[in-house]
Design a protein around this nucleic acid. Structure first.
Length: 311
DNA sequence: TCCCAGGCCCTAC
DNA sequence: GTAGGGCATGGG
């Protein structure tokens, strides 16, 4: 297994940052040592904290694929981005108390994840708690993904990769329903989305072109059954690596009212309210990094104000 | 028991 | 255009 170390200008806290919610595919295998495992680009990766600003990564390619490069890891963990610089000076001066509250969250990264995996993940995240979402993804992987067993400190550890679009396109709806919290409609929608991707009628790679217009991408994604504004924005932020995409979920809806007193936050989150709130948020945050900044606000809100511990 | 959790969609008005 | 209910389950 190859070992590598990647560094960041900022502190990185694995337990409190990278894995705090934006991905459901990293699993803690050694809580005492903060050791996590996942599969990225056909490589089994084990990540642990080396120093406050560096990660030690053990990687092993699966199925004779090439080893993952250091550049790719820096890209995946978005170490090219300084989270605090995602907030404009106007924000820092206008909201000094909130700014102080955000400083401990400087280690939070928005991972540049796989688009299809992100799409399915957020299709599983409708109106239910974080632990059920994680359970759904775990079950999808264990039933439809490929099993990999590697050795960690002399002990075998088994892990499942996320299934391909082709695999989910051919999934039995009754079996997928077991994975989607018994929700038939959700299972059916995921199969439809997988068929769109595997048949080529939905080209996620083309949507990842950074020169493309956000609204145009969102319109395409919203053409899928079971995908609305929020899920489309999450796919753009986490799966298409568009840090300018700003999803408004129930928590964002709440903090936009609490911290910024946006009048739209008092209304229910209809399509119209969603778009209004999003536009108003972009006036407060830097448009280029609104989604990245929003992710720090999201976790700060959940942990410091709502005192939620799950992620 | 009740409310809400990283929503979406359909119906009634 | 907006409000309300269904989908589903579990934790606080």
């Amino acid at each position: 297994m190859r070992s590598d170390t990647i560094h960041s200008r900022n502190d990185i806290d694995l337990n409190n940052s990278i894995f705090s919610g934006q991905t459901f595919r990293w699993t803690n295998i050694e809580r005492d040592h903060q050791k996590y495992i996942s599969i990225i680009d056909g490589n089994v990766l084990i990540v642990e904290q080396e120093t406050p600003s560096s990660l030690r990564i053990l990687s092993q390619p699966v199925q004779n694929q090439n080893e993952i490069s250091r550049d790719r890891l820096n890209d995946y963990f978005s170490l090219d981005i300084d989270p605090l610089e995602c907030f404009p000076l106007s924000f820092r001066t206008r909201y000094p108390e909130l700014w102080q509250l955000l400083l401990p969250y400087r280690g939070i990264r928005v991972l540049r994840q796989d688009a299809f995996e992100t799409l399915v993940t957020f299709m599983c995240a409708q109106g239910i708690g974080m632990h059920i979402i994680r359970r759904q993804i775990d079950t999808i992987c264990s039933r439809f993904g490929r099993k990999h067993t590697i050795e960690v400190n002399g002990k075998p550890v088994s892990f499942f990769s996320f299934p391909s679009a082709e695999t989910l396109a051919g999934a039995d709806p009754a079996e997928l329903k077991i994975c989607t919290n018994n929700n038939c409609l959700r299972a059916s929608n995921i199969i439809s989305a997988a068929r769109a991707v595997s048949s080529g009628s939905l080209e996620l790679n083309a949507l990842a072109d950074p020169s493309r217009n956000l609204e145009e991408i969102r319109e395409t994604l919203c053409g899928l059954k079971g995908v609305g504004l929020k899920i489309a924005d999450c796919v753009m932020l986490f799966g298409l690596h568009r840090f300018d995409a700003f999803p408004v979920d129930t928590h964002v809806h709440q903090y936009l009212g609490h911290w910024f007193s946006l009048p739209g936050a008092l209304k229910s989150l209809s399509r119209k309210t969603y778009l209004t709130l999003q536009k108003e948020a972009l006036d407060i945050l830097s448009p280029r990094y609104a989604g990245f900044a929003g992710h720090l606000l999201f976790h700060c809100w959940r942990r410091d104000i709502r005192h939620m511990t799950s992620f």
